[in-house]
Design a binder for these strands. Structure first.
Lengths: 188, 188
DNA sequence: ATGCGACTAGAACGATCGTTCTCTCACACG
DNA sequence: CGTGTGAGAGAACGATCGTTCTAGTCGCAT
C-alpha cells in the first residue's frame, strides 16, 4: 500500500510532513535523516532528489508552520472583534496544536547564528506576526496599537512556552488575564 | 600556564564553567565533548573522572544557572520593594547576561521527555521561581498574589525569549509596561 | 625511595551522523 | 517498441558522536 499512483509531488509533501512532525516533537538536531526516511517510508535517494539536504527540510518545516499560522490568522481575520479572536485563537492553539511549545522559539534555541536561513525565517515570521497584531489592535481602537501588539507578541511567546512547560490548563487563565490587562479591555 | 598547583576541585569547576558557556551559547546537542575538552584545555580521562558523561555536564550546567538565579534573587531579596526589584532584575538580566534566551527554555526545546533529569530540573526551578514571585507579590500587597505571580512568570519567559529574538532594547519597555499592567502598579 | 592519585596524550571502540553512489524496476511518452 | 525519468532498496563514504582504554608524567605523601 505504498500508493504508487502518486508519483511526484506526493513524495515531497509526505517527506515534509513527516520531518515537520518529528522536528517539532523531538527537536531538530536530535532527529536524524534515517529516522525521517523510515518514518516516511522513503528512500534516501528520493529525499535528496527533492531536498538539497537536512537543512532544507528544516526550512520546509518552519515554512509549513508559517503557512499554517497565516491560514489560521486569515480564517479569524473576518471576525467582528479581531483582537478577541486572535487571543482566543492563541489560547486554543496552545491547548490543542502546539503543546510542545513554539516551533520557532524551539528552533532558535538550536540555531544561535542569526545569519542562518533558519534564524532569518524566524525573524521574518515574527515581524509579520507583530504587524498583524498591530493592525488588529488598531482596528480595535487601541490608543497605542504598537505597544499593545508588542505586549501581545510577548504574551503569545509566554503562553506557548508556559503551556509546554507548565501545562496548557495552568496557563490559559493567566494568559487571558494578562492580555486583557495590557489591551485595556476584557478579552476573556 | 596550566596552573598545575590547583589539582582536584579546580578541574571540575573549570570543566563545568566551560561546558555551561558552550551549551548556553551554541545549544546542547550541537556541542560535542571534544569541543568542551579542547576549550577547557583538558583531557578526556579527566572529564570522565569528574562526570559520568555528557548528560551529567548538562545537569551541572542547569544547576549552575539555577544557583546563579537564586543568588541574584537572594541579593535583591532585602529590597524595600521586592516586586519592583524583581522586575528590574529581570530586565537587567535580559539585557546583559542572558542575551541568548532562557537556558531552561532552550534546554527544554532539546529535551522532549519530561521524565528526563533535565526536564525534572527545569520543572523544579520553575516551581521555585513561581513561589518566590508569589511571595513577592503577597509582600507588595497584591490582592491575588498567585495570579500576579503567574503573570510575571509568563512575562519573564517572554522577556528572555523576546530579548533573544527581537533584541533586548526592543523588549524592555513592553516588558515593564506589561508587568505594571498585570501588577496594577507602575513598576517602571 | 616508593607508591599513590590526578593529570595529559592519544589510540580505539561501536554507533550514528549527513551525504553520495550504484543498481533495479515500473510507468509514461515519443 | 524503445527510452526517459522518477522512485525503489541498500551499500558505502568520511566524519563525528560519546565512551573506554592504555601509557606516560608530575607532585606529594608516607
Amino acid at each position: 500500500m505504498t500508493t504508487p499512483a502518486a508519483p511526484a509531488q506526493d513524495a515531497r509533501e509526505r517527506l515534509a510532513a513527516t520531518a515537520s512532525d518529528l522536528f517539532y516533537r523531538e527537536g531538530i538536531h536530535s532527529v536524524g535523516v534515517d529516522r525521517i526516511l523510515s518514518e516516511a517510508g522513503m528512500s534516501r535517494a528520493t529525499m535528496y532528489r527533492h531536498f538539497g539536504g537536512k537543512e532544507d527540510l528544516v526550512v520546509a518545516y518552519l515554512e509549513r508552520e508559517d503557512r499554517g499560522i497565516r491560514a489560521q490568522v486569515a480564517a479569524a481575520g473576518g471576525s467582528p472583534d479581531p483582537l478577541r479572536a486572535a487571543v482566543h485563537g492563541i489560547a486554543e492553539d496552545v491547548a490543542r496544536r502546539h503543546t510542545r511549545g513554539c516551533p520557532f522559539i524551539n528552533a532558535a534555541a538550536e540555531y544561535p547564528d542569526e545569519a542562518s536561513a533558519v534564524r532569518r525565517l524566524i525573524a521574518t515570521h515574527r515581524a509579520w506576526f507583530r504587524g498583524v497584531l498591530t493592525q488588529a489592535a488598531a482596528g480595535a481602537g487601541a490608543s497605542d496599537p504598537e505597544r499593545v501588539a508588542a505586549a501581545l507578541v510577548m504574551l503569545r511567546d509566554a503562553a506557548l512556552v508556559g503551556g509546554y512547560l507548565d501545562g496548557a490548563e495552568n496557563i490559559r487563565e493567566a494568559f487571558l488575564d494578562s492580555a486583557s490587562a495590557v489591551a485595556g479591555v476584557d478579552l476573556a
